[in-house]
């Protein structure tokens, strides 16, 4: 190929790519193509290829895809965007990406991971040690113990506790603190306002 052909072909590619050539370059192309059959053929073929390149079908994904995408990004980068269900979905998505060739493995892996996390949580809670004060001085107040009315014997459930019974136990403050932490309440005041009332009225506790 002559050097001039190489230069002209580069200009042809640039022109096809949307570059604006100056008048001198355009005249040079026209002049060369009028007498070089190979370069004219090159120009025609490149025109066909560029037409097809630009006309290549592109996916038109549904708007929902972009909504999901936006929410996922916002959740990851903006503090306070996380929700439990979204976190689980994000976990699932991350697991799914680990198995790009086997998408069916993702639900299985997510399930196994979920069970593992559940077992780990259960084991952690089961072996959670009580406070020394409670273990030494007072009967432990647990939901599984049998019902009793004596101050030495704890009642069977929170709903059966009366305020007097609670006050009769030694280390009541420690007991309340432990209950508060186990029920995930924000402060002792809140616990007293909300939980004591429900204990006295016999309503079930909400731990969330």
């Amino acid at each position: 190929m002559k050097p001039v052909c190489k230069e002209i072909r580069e200009l042809v590619i640039e022109a096809q790519s949307g570059a604006s050539l100056d008048p001198h370059q355009q005249r040079a192309i026209q002049k060369h193509l009028s007498r070089c059959l190979d370069c004219r053929r090159f120009q025609e073929e490149m025109a066909l290829i560029f037409n097809e390149l630009k006309a290549s079908p592109l996916p038109y994904p549904p708007d929902a895809l972009f909504e999901d995408l936006k929410h996922a990004v916002m959740e990851a980068v903006v503090p306070g965007e996380a929700h439990p269900e979204n976190s689980f979905r994000a976990l699932f998505e991350r697991v799914r990406r680990l198995f790009p060739q086997h998408p069916f493995l993702a639900p299985v892996a997510s399930g196994v991971l979920g069970i593992f996390i559940g077992i780990a949580l259960a084991v952690t809670l089961a072996f959670h040690s009580p406070s020394p004060v409670l273990s030494q001085k007072t009967p432990r107040l647990t939901l599984s113990q049998s019902s009793a009315t004596s101050p030495d014997t704890p009642p069977s459930s929170l709903s059966s506790i009366s305020l007097n019974e609670i006050e009769e136990y030694a280390g009541t403050d420690a007991l309340l603190n432990t209950l508060e932490s186990q029920l995930s309440l924000e402060s002792p005041d809140q616990w007293e306002e909300q939980s004591t009332e429900s204990l006295l009225s016999g309503e079930p506790q909400e731990t969330g």
């Binding site: 592109l58 996916p59 972009f66 995408l69 790009p100």
Partner: peptide, 28 residues
């Protein structure tokens, strides 16, 4: 952040699709 995502997400998705040729991969 939301406005910038909305402004560019389709363009970036299309660019990545042209590179990968796969919708799921492009989304991720």
């Amino acid at each position: 952040i939301g406005a910038l995502i909305e402004r560019y997400q389709r363009e970036v998705f299309t660019f990545i699709y042209k590179m990968t040729g796969n919708i799921e991969e492009s989304k991720d």
